[in-house]
Amino acid sequence: METLACIKRVADTGAEIVLTEDKQSVDASAVGYTMGPHEECAIEEAVQVVEEEGGTSTVLSLGPEDVEDQIYEGIGRGADEGIIMETDGEEWGPESTATAIADGVEERDFDLLFFGNESGDNANYQVGIRVAHQLDLPVVTGIKDFDVDGDTAIAKRDVPGGSEVFEVDTPAVITVKEGLNTPRYPSMRSRMQAKKQELEVLDPKDTEDRLQMQELETPEAEDSEAEVLGEGPEAVDNAVEVLEEMEVL
């Protein structure tokens, strides 16, 4: 089977999100970039399916030149090939991203196209579904359990009290959520080897987004210092008092 995992790089934020001065993006200069947790699982699934069924797994990302770091990471995690759809660094919205990906992979016979259910930063919830419609493929979303049986993909998603099961014919688009699998971490050796691999560079079809970000804003923090009840085990009497006031005991 030919599998594809489409990933997006996101800032590796910690306790606080810092914006660039022009408020057009998150300032990642101090924290660097990573990929979203859903997409780590997308890569792992694309790799596992090929390990079981044979074929080739490919990692694709649309972004500026240095998004190759995340693609190499995917290769280090076991993917066979990498495709970079290189942009000039401006943010691409969900419509243009989907159109570029669909255009870029249209002529290739991928059997399974994995996406994150929503991106870790912008969470537009639509890129995978738009790609599926442009390629005229079935799509299932929010998947946390996945299996292939011949030409059928068996995909499950969590609902309260159980899971909903979908069965679709391949080729298909599958958008996944963290918890689907346990992504492997690349060894130092596989990381080094990944970087020796040549990536395929595609020029993405550039279309206009009707949703246009103008400016980002960090919401006013509701932070206030917590009332310190004390240090160590001696604090528990105060804590019990507070819990009694809350009427949770």
Binding site: D223, E225, V228, G232, D237, L243
Partner: peptide
């Protein structure tokens, strides 16, 4: 500590069992 309402500064391995006992007693 800046997001919460109340805080106990300490090692949870010491605080949590103590808190469990104190709540049980209360």
């Amino acid at each position: 500590m800046y997001k919460g309402d109340y805080a106990i500064v300490g090692d949870l391995h010491e605080v949590v069992p103590e808190l469990t006992d104190a709540i049980e007693a209360a």
